[in-house]
Design a protein around this nucleic acid. Structure first.
Lengths: 121, 121
DNA sequence: TCCCATAGTTCGGAACTTCGGAACTAATGG
DNA sequence: CCATTAGTTCCGAAGTTCCGAACTATGGGA
């Protein structure tokens, strides 16, 4: 397995972050990683709302979040632990993540709220 | 020409806003509409940086911004005037737009900063 | 050491989206 | 009306996303 790529914080671009979080599944995963003490195995997030997310899609979602600079993933034995890079991103783009996460949290539309919709396996 | 569709503010969804602003061209157009006194003919924005944006793509960008609930477009004679819906969006998702616009403004990467990169025709 | 189970990645094709040129529609002014 | 300016629609090419199947990596027994 080749080692996981993480951009330096100065290479992180706003459009990439917005693109990553424009998907409600990914926003939910990111919100979950943050509130779950910033550590989370990929497989601990296997469904959002009622819908099961296939493994290959999940793997891709984590890759998008990682390459956007939003999370840091490290292999620990057989599993990968994901840490949010909130502090770094907040220092670079103050208020950006808070605005986005709050927007999803306050959204009461047809889809459930990402931060709460996620389910443990 | 059929009349332009605008979502009610309560139908505006965070993922749609993020998707709309995840394109640096659209973010630049939106930033420009706001700082130019909230009124702007479509054709007043015809290039971002060095690249000329074709008319059909521009038309589509305005449509995406409109349907995301970010701008309001009205026909005035032969041209369309675009107003930002900042106040409404700010009331629904506080801090979201400010975070995004600041992120683009503070980005000093390879692409020029959207808020400044735009050019009058 | 070899095999198994678990965790995650890659591949590849179908479905969807985006881009942009050409043709079209709409309003206004000779 | 015809010309002009402003914007939209159409449609094909190129690119992206989704997800099942096959694959790779790691660790734990026997």
């Amino acid at each position: 397995m080749r080692s996981l790529f993480h951009p330096a914080i100065e290479d992180v671009r706003p459009e990439t972050i917005l693109h990553a979080l424009a998907d409600p599944n990914r926003a939910a995963i990111f919100a979950k990683i943050m509130q779950a003490g910033c550590v989370e195995a990929c497989s601990a997030v296997s469904a959002v709302g009622d819908r099961v997310i296939p493994k290959s899609s999940l793997s891709n979602h984590f890759k998008v979040l990682r390459e956007a600079g939003l999370i840091r993933s490290e292999r620990h034995g057989v599993e990968v632990r994901n840490h949010s890079r909130w502090t770094e991103v907040e220092a670079r783009f103050p208020g950006l993540l808070a605005g986005i996460i709050n927007a999803y949290a306050s959204d009461t539309g047809p889809d459930a709220r990402p931060a709460e919709a996620i389910r443990q396996r």
